[in-house]
Design a protein around this nucleic acid. Structure first.
Lengths: 194, 194, 194, 194
DNA sequence: TATGAATGAGGATTCATTCAT
DNA sequence: TATGAATGAATCCTCATTCAT
């Protein structure tokens, strides 16, 4: 399995840094190879093409990202707690790895729609985690029972994504994780008074 | 004023269609010129460069987009009604012009961060409209008074944006406008039961 | 006759200044038109094409240049005096009009060989003036009688040209006209001692 | 060292021929690549850009040119002999390689002043060789001791350059090398009788 | 004569990918 | 496995010239 060889990981890690530092368009394969300490041609022993590097970066990093979140919510008892934990871990992980944050929130969006489809596939498990929390909330009667799961998922993910993107675009000048509780309250209670 | 000349509008409209059909990267200037029925060089009498076409597309279309929404909410009495109207018009306008929807939700995101900054500037007035609704809601006591306006704006915009993007990515197979009321209810009431 | 109309001269004079200031390649027809205070299209009522402007500039300016020299040497009695006068006037005229000097010594050399042929045709009368001085010098026994006129002409013109070019390239930091007598002495006496 | 690799020399030689045959402006990089038998992109592994090809052509060829002359004059005893040898070798080398002659006398002059500066730098060693002959001539009392070295150098170089240019422009219809002795005599003795 | 908006041909350069070693 | 020299496709923009007014 190629994914366990050291050079595979070297290249993935080099790619995250190179893309974050140089931006998507200025991240030539040769630059990634240099950062990874391998020859240009070696890249193609581990990845089909440049797009495959990007998708793999996302797969690897999002895999860990989601795993971390799944682990974090597993011992929470209520949907409410799980949602709060998900938000906190979502924010914390990106706050802790700002290279990755830049890549996921800005640089990877520059890829073409075809690549975006693949990226969405990688994102799917995360959306399923969100769905499961929604379902649990409804069944446990902490959430209303007339909720449209798809819409709710879009609200949750859209809100988190927009919040992180704003934070990255404003050059991470404030504490992202500190906003987790407020975001959670907002999603739970909505805007209305009562 | 160049913006009122017919060729300016021809080129803008051609650009929307060409970008929607071919994608951002495959939209050569020559292709846009051909679609617009002008010579390649003519483009440069109206636009500084290729990027300027894209920014201008966004300016023109978002200008109309926002104007439409401002007009629509102007005769609504409550923040609640205004928010619902904003959501409906946001969805309706993109549903009615799916070329534009594709461009704003997918293709334009491929632009580099520098261009994104310009696009964000164009988006600013829209965010201000959202802010004014939030403020009105708080002052009119329909919304809670401890809301963080920035977070609320991110929730509203993030939710709408994610909802439209999903609809575009799923090839517009369902009725976007029909979801407006549910999205509105979700934002107003949140997830919780009471 | 177009050449006597005011706009013809306006365009010629504008061209000299524009080429001297911007260099040959950056001297667009539109820039010359603007400087001359006419529309782009008007240029083509007076000149066949851009090359024709350049050739005409040279014709006009060299015509005056040569005329001035012919006038200056007409009342000199000896070939020696005539040669000295030619050198002085050659240097003086270019020193007095540094725009023209820049154009003739640097910018016009960038033209393609085909254009250079036309320019050489304009230069012909000047070379004939030099030839006539040589002939007079030989017949009057001030110059040796075994001189090859073509070579002598090349030496005289080559020396003057190289001297002016050097002066222009060194940004005209020294007095060109002051070198006339030394150059003359050099051409007359050569390098040898006796 | 790239300059010793075979492709470097292939490209240089191809460039000389392509420029001589097509002229400076019609010498596209792709044409040079084709003539050299390499891909367009390969050019850029050896040269920074198109201008760099031209400067390198001049460097390579002038390097050999000057070396040849320095070698030729090294065993001549007098300044007179050295000057004659320099003239003969100058003429001979360009007569023997008429592609190079066309490039140096006509095509390369079309370059813009910025490039001309670089070319002048390459020419500098040649001018120094001329200067050293002048100095030797003065010190050895074969040349007058009141000579202005700069002017003499300009006379010598200007005369040789103009002579070669004329020969090229007259399509090399006569024997250039045969004129070396006459040119030499002219420079040594000047025009005057005694 | 004069205008100036419109035309459209033309070329240097980058960089993902290959393949002989 | 690993290398890195070589490949070659692909595109934005300028500007001399035209022509309807």
């Amino acid at each position: 399995m190629k994914k366990n060889k050291p050079k595979y990981k070297q290249i993935i890690d080099a790619a995250v840094v190179v893309i974050a530092e140089n931006g998507y368009h200025a991240s030539q394969v040769s630059k990634i190879a240099k950062k990874a300490g391998v020859a240009d041609g070696t890249i193609y022993l581990y990845f089909k093409n440049k797009e495959d590097i990007l998708v793999s970066v996302f797969e690897e990093k999002m895999g860990q990202f989601i795993e971390e979140i799944e682990k974090g919510i597993s011992d929470k008892q209520t949907a409410n707690d799980k949602l709060l934990t998900l938000i906190m871990l979502h924010f914390r992980q990106l706050a802790d790895n700002h290279h990755l944050a830049t890549v996921t929130q800005l640089e990877l969006r520059q890829s073409d729609p075809q690549l975006r489809l693949k990226i969405n596939k990688v994102l799917k498990p995360y959306l399923l985690v969100i769905d499961s929390i929604i379902k649990e909330g409804i069944e446990g009667s902490s959430f209303r029972d007339n909720l449209n799961t798809q819409l709710v998922r879009q609200m949750i993910f859209g809100t988190l994504d927009e919040t992180v993107t704003n934070w990255v675009m404003k050059e991470r000048k404030y504490d992202l994780v500190a906003q987790a509780e407020d975001v959670h309250a907002l999603l739970i209670n909505g805007l209305s008074v009562s």
